[in-house]
Design a protein around this nucleic acid. Structure first.
Length: 476
RNA sequence: CGGGGAAUGGCGCAGUUUGGCAGCGCGCACGGUUUGGGACCGUGAGGUCCCGGGUUCAAAUCCCGGUUCCCCGACCA
């Protein structure tokens, strides 16, 4: 009586099943939009809070900007408008009257923030400006999928302005590192940091960096981006400052974002045929207590012990839930596995008598993951177990990814490799090369990883000598 | 936006070919027996058959138009 399609049978269907059955999200009555339900939102909040902490720790502040952007703003940066106009939602009527100037619903906020920065920045003393915004944006996508690609999506967008390119470049890399650390340390998702190829970079950026992850079906997911905008937006919006030498100079700006797509990554990287497997650090419920009893007198004794364990765990800072629903234990075991709760505490009459509990871990399914331990010191034991599970999930994901990346040196090898994983291939950073490979293999240039083994190769398409290899894979 | 599939109670589906009482499993409510890996019996609630038109004595079923979802392509966080 499985509620889920198996991953091997149909990964895409499995993904949708998990989202529904684990109560993460529901479809909204609007094309391509989803409703995030409390359990899913709680997971997003946990991820968001960790990321927000990292932003604050690197000197950034949060602020809010309008969701409506005058069309003329988007038109000011040529590449930017070219990239985004096909997916804009535009408001033409307000208060029952035709608007003089249509307003785009923000697809991203570089332009309106650039406009504001131009007013705020006058002197080198005003720099750097380090602002982040948590908001939602709208992009009219043709093909949508919960969390991975929705018409409206929630994310954060950081926007900074600096006096020199040296500073702005540092910022771009700093935030890429923040994303990679968040993915690794909190979401247990190993990522590869890299530079986007010319054809894949953000509309209006000089260069774009991303973190790329491998999902459970060996497809790639771009999980966050960090852009070096050069002086493009500073020029378009007149973001200038008076330097120490009393000359006016253009600022250098950056932008960087991570969306709730990362939540999709957590599902697809860790999930198994029983459902979600959540890393303890971000799990809405870290431990669930399942009481087991046959009759009223057993119930009284078991519930008393369960309550006491609940209080202890909670006071030790563990996000714990006591499942007192009128369901059989077996049902609850499966239910919480589906929802990805990392640790399960089972307590029955025998445990009450022995002063023990049965401890089950989600990352090791079935009875293999179960052990019987004393109630004394349970909170400490569970806290340690969280760390084991957290690092275990990361390790599993890393092993899986590394086992599915092949270094190739010919086009034929690349074609074969991307049928079942990633390929690391020497290529020229040339849109024509990207396009040809995509056309013929369906795989795209994910990035030129920052960590490169030094060497000289021949581009597998053009035969030209190259010093870098790029990661290719089929992508979401 | 192009090609293919689908939409029937909360979920999964049958019924559509050949028009004729809207059904099944799970879930839900209540009562009882159960409870250490998805319990069982009984009773019951729950439906604009995706939406809008049309044909017909009669439409879930046939015709026209639209919407949404899934899969495959082109665009993207």
């Amino acid at each position: 009586m499985a509620k889920l399609t198996s991953r091997t049978q149909d990964f895409s269907e499995w993904y949708l099943d998990v989202i529904r059955e684990a109560d993460l999200a529901d479809y909204a009555p609007v094309r391509g939009c989803i409703v995030v339900k409390p359990y899913g939102w709680s997971l997003y909040e946990n991820m968001r809070d960790f990321l927000d902490r990292r932003f604050k720790d690197t000197g950034h502040s949060n602020a809010a900007f309008p969701m409506f952007i005058p069309m003329s703003f988007l038109n000011r940066e040529a590449q930017h408008v070219k990239g985004f106009s096909p997916e804009l939602a535009v408001v033409t009527v307000g208060g029952g009257e035709q608007l003089e100037e249509p307003l785009a619903v923000r697809p991203t906020s570089e332009t309106i923030i650039g406009y504001m920065y131009a007013q705020w920045v006058k002197s080198y003393r005003d720099l750097p400006v380090l602002i982040n915004a948590w908001n939602s944006v709208v992009r009219w996508e043709k093909r949508t999928r919960p969390f991975l690609r929705t018409t409206e999506f929630f994310w954060q967008e950081g926007h900074t302005a600096h006096a020199t390119h040296e500073e702005s470049s540092e910022e771009v890399m700093r935030m890429l590192d923040v994303y990679a650390a968040h993915a690794r340390d909190e979401c247990a998702v190993p990522v590869i940091k890299g530079r986007k190829s010319i054809s894949e970079r953000f509309a209006g950026a000089d260069s774009t960096y991303s973190i790329e992850a491998m999902m459970g079906d060996k497809k790639a997911l771009q999980s966050a981006t960090s852009h070096d905008l050069g002086q493009n937006f500073a020029r378009a919006f007149d973001i200038k400052y008076l330097d120490r030498d009393n000359t006016e100079k253009l600022c250098w700006t950056t932008s960087w974002g991570m969306s709730w797509r990362m939540l999709g990554a957590v599902i697809m990287v860790h999930g198994d045929d029983q459902g979600l497997r959540l890393p303890p650090r971000i799990a809405p419920i870290q431990a669930v207590i399942v009481p087991i009893y046959k009759n009223e007198s057993e119930r009284t004794a078991v519930m008393q012990a369960a309550d006491s364990i609940f209080t202890t765990l909670k006071s030790n800072g563990i996000r714990v839930k006591l499942d007192d629903r009128d369901e059989t234990p077996g049902f609850k075991f499966n239910d919480w596995e589906l929802r990805g709760v990392p640790v399960r505490v089972e307590i029955g009459p025998r445990d009450v008598a022995n002063g023990t509990v049965a401890l089950g871990r989600r990352d090791v399914p079935g009875k293999a993951g179960k052990s019987f331990v004393p109630q004394a010191g349970l909170a400490e034991r569970i806290t340690t177990l969280f760390e084991e599970i957290q690092s275990g999930l990361l390790q599993q994901a890393t092993n899986f990814r590394d086992a599915n990346i092949r270094e190739v040196s010919t086009y034929a090898e690349l074609k074969e490799a991307v049928e079942d994983g990633f390929a690391l291939a020497p290529v020229a950073d040339d849109p024509a090369v990207d396009a040809q490979i995509k056309e013929e293999t369906k795989a795209t240039n994910r990035c030129f990883p920052l960590e490169q083994v030094p060497g000289e190769w021949k581009c597998i398409v053009t035969g030209k000598p190259v010093r870098e290899r790029a990661l290719f894979g089929k992508a979401y």
